[in-house]
Amino acid sequence: MKRTLILAALGAASFGATNVQAEEVNIYSLRQPELLAPLTAAFEEKTGIKTNVLFVKDGVVDRVASEGENSPADVVMTVDIGRLDAAKQAGIWQPIPQDITADVPANFVEPDGAWVALTARARVFYVSKDRVDAENLSYADLASDEWAGRVCTRSGQHAYSIGLVASQIAHNGEEATKEWLEGVRDNLARKPTGNDRAQVQAIYSGECDLAIGNTYYMGKMLTNDAEPEQKEWAASVRLVYPDAEQSKTHVNISGVVLAKHAPNEDAAKQFIDFLLSDEAQAIYAETNFEFPIMPGVEASDLVQSWGELKADSLPLAEIADKRDEASKLVDEVKFDEGPQN
């Protein structure tokens, strides 16, 4: 009921409206249009508002900032807390109304309303089914002697890695995190390289036994009919949620920003409100293998088969504040050069 009333109040293209001037919303997205197609199609059908998606692979925040008051962007959709924080720091946002975000868990909303999360993805372990029996693992274990020469990961400077290191700083402090990061570095089976899928391939080939990666890549690999070899990689591993017993599995997010100079502001607000609806959250869950952030909306059956996510409740804005420290720490310990022992 709340969500229906919000949509009706925000603009002329409310549910069931007829004989109104056509509206549109311009979406700048780090995600390719085909990934958003199920969402935009459902929104258009429900509201009559046309969606225009511009895929911006790199530099979306800089682009909107450089366009200034003339920017056609109504909303910016991106992934990773770092990119969302960059949007805030660049000043390309206006507050998302609190009545739209009222039902969103507080740790998924930027305190000033600069962004709101849309989905969550956990930073987990992929472990070899044949060579790893452990069920309960922690991020701390990555630095233990048991895993010497058995760990694979992508670059420490990648946004996903920086998010994890920043969360460790937020929880444990910089000095403890530095010691931990040095231990992880020296347990690597090789220099950090490749993307998250490449780490699973390395387990499949026997190069390492444990890899760090995002949950949704497992779903993408298991259902990849175009590249069936990825199904074989994924079948060789199982997924472990680190620190599950302490409810501290690190999560990152995709999210949305309401553009500062949105030319179609009312339509943009309706679109953001729709993205937080049960319908849109369920579409995300089924098509992208991500976790809905709205209470009461379940993950897909495949994602649920991996076990229960007990996510870290630390506000993501606090993790974002530690990202610069995390990046400096990765360079300081020469993480991307691999083992130093």
Rank of each mutant, 00 (worst) to 15 (best):
K178G: 11
E308V: 14
P242L: 06
F125W: 00
S300Y: 07
G91E: 05
I272M: 04
A42C: 13
D80R: 10
V251Q: 07
R121T: 11
D331L: 11
L10F: 10
T223V: 08
V76G: 07
K322G: 05
E182D: 09
K334V: 13
A42Y: 11
V200P: 03
K88I: 01
W147F: 03
I6R: 05
R238Q: 12
V60A: 00
E229R: 15
G173E: 09
K57N: 12
P105E: 02
I169Y: 08
V109G: 03
S327V: 04
L181H: 04
G16N: 01
Y139P: 09
E175G: 07
I49T: 09
V104L: 07
F335E: 09
V303L: 10
E286S: 14
R150W: 13
E279Y: 08
G296R: 01
N264Y: 06
G296F: 05
D209H: 15
I212A: 15
G59V: 06
T223L: 04
Q94K: 11
T223P: 12
Y204M: 07
A226L: 00
R150P: 07
Q281L: 06
V79T: 14
S161V: 07
A90T: 01
T4M: 14
L30S: 13
A148I: 13
D74C: 10
Y160N: 08
S161W: 05
L7N: 05
H158V: 14
A114R: 04
D301R: 15
F55M: 08
V333W: 04
D209E: 15
V20F: 06
P315K: 10
S138R: 03
V79I: 14
D85T: 15
D243N: 10
V251E: 02
F15A: 12
L118S: 03
G68C: 10
E325C: 02
N26V: 13
K129A: 03
V61H: 01
A235V: 04
G149C: 14
K269H: 00
V330R: 09
T18P: 00
F125G: 13
I293H: 05
Q201G: 03
V303F: 05
F55T: 02
E174A: 05
I27C: 02
Y28N: 05
F55V: 06
S66P: 11
L35S: 13
L329C: 13
D99Q: 12
Y126A: 05
D324I: 09
A282K: 04
D273R: 04
A42L: 08
